[in-house]
Design a binder for these strands. Structure first.
Lengths: 236, 236
DNA sequence: GTTAACTGTTAACGGTGTTCACTCTAGGCT
DNA sequence: AGCCTAGAGTGAACACCGTTAACAGTTAAC
């Protein structure tokens, strides 16, 4: 005899589970409102008791997937001892993100394949999906800040970056544990290269030159780790 | 009294022009078959005389856009003298690609924002869009090969790349003017970083840390140019 | 025990890509 | 010149989509 809100929460979970099933089996386009209703043996309008629109349903799914990915990456790091090499943790994070994308291509495409809405819509900054994405991003930011305070790496001086870039980077310093602009620049470069690499591999934009991007990814990972003063495992 | 095929070709061009108008004004989702027909004052089934499906229409538009982008990048290079610094050409290419994306965000999203179909569908490798994408890619490949033969740059030895990666890269050597694996690796790194960077900027995945990615792009461009032994204009 | 909130239904509207049967016009062939 | 066939375009229809409105049954709360 579950209370009403419990039943409601359970139904919401079932809806999202059905949506995800459709996403996995048929890609982003397959997760339609009517299809989800069909999956649950409901009529389409019934879903409007739980989500105000189809887009809201998809957004909720996106938020869930972000949180799942975030959790997967976090407990991938916490499995080892506390005094582990932080560089190895970053290596685990990078490989964990890639692996998640490779094992969940449909979910990955939903999270990172669609263009982010323009940032001028400032009223939509509080969407649950956006907040979940922020939590996901801070996993990387916090680890990088830890690495910096653990073993500071050499970074380019402000002169070579240019004052405009330094100004923007300094503004983000609080989110990076007070790191200097040059160190934030290197961290951002790490993220940019990692993210771009994984997206290109999973979205198939690397197939035309590399049939299997694993070795290339490994080499790149070694390269970008070095820039942060880390000794990632060298290939071969 | 234009011949029948002329009239037909003209109509095809009008259809694609209308599709593009819709793409620019309303994004990828706005270029629907019925909307295109409406734009031309036709009924939807009429378009099936020119394209077998909606997807084919979009594919044709994609191919056109690839060719337009390719042409824009090519005559961006050919505007200067023949004995110009080839490094400057690569710099122009990189900036040209970014500028095209920034001035044509809807077209850019259509070309690079949707996931590429899986490569296991080998029968769809001859689609006009795919061929146009190949032509686009070879602009970069050919310029890099020219640079290599013009002023060979130092490259990592096979040992640090690993035999698996070297094997894959060597297989692509013919498309890169006979360059060694390490040189192809550096070129691929250049492309990967450039491509990833531009996609992230235009798809808004850099907004959360950099309000204006121009300075960051400039710094990155300088960095990746150096890896190819080029003296790109330094920032500031 | 009555009442109000909640959950689900059916019917319908406007939108989409697509197919079929039909008309009409213009070119090619004898 | 005259048929006649291929091509271009139309209207009606189908199956799908997201969404809304009006309605019915159940269930929790006062």
């Amino acid at each position: 005899m579950e209370s009403r809100d419990r039943r409601r929460a359970a139904t919401v979970a079932e809806i999202k589970a059905a949506a995800r099933r459709l996403l996995v089996s048929g890609g982003t386009a397959a997760v339609g409102l009517r299809a989800v209703a069909r999956e649950l043996g409901l009529t389409p309008p019934a879903l409007y008791r739980y989500f105000p629109s189809h887009e809201a349903l998809v957004s909720a799914l996106i938020a869930d997937l972000y949180d799942e990915l975030t959790a997967a990456l976090m407990d991938l790091q916490s499995t080892d001892e506390d005094d582990v090499d932080l560089g190895a943790r970053l290596y685990l994070l990078a490989n964990g993100l890639r692996d998640w994308g490779r094992t969940h291509p449909a979910e990955f495409a939903l999270l990172f394949g669609t263009a982010v809405p323009s940032p001028d819509a400032e009223d939509h900054e509080e969407t649950p999906g956006h907040q979940a994405a922020m939590r996901f991003g801070s996993v990387f930011k916090e680890l990088v800040a830890q690495i910096w305070h653990w073993k500071p790496f050499p970074y380019p001086p402000d002169e070579v970056l240019g004052s405009e870039l330094v100004a923007q980077l300094t503004q983000e310093s609080e989110h990076f544990g007070g790191m200097p602009a040059g160190a934030i620049y290197l961290s951002l470069t790490y993220w940019t290269r990692l993210y771009g690499l994984i997206c290109m591999e999973i979205f198939g934009q690397l197939h035309w030159v590399l049939p299997d991007a694993a070795a290339y990814f490994e080499a790149q990972l070694y390269e970008i780790g070095q820039a942060l003063g880390l000794d990632c495992p060298a290939p071969e």
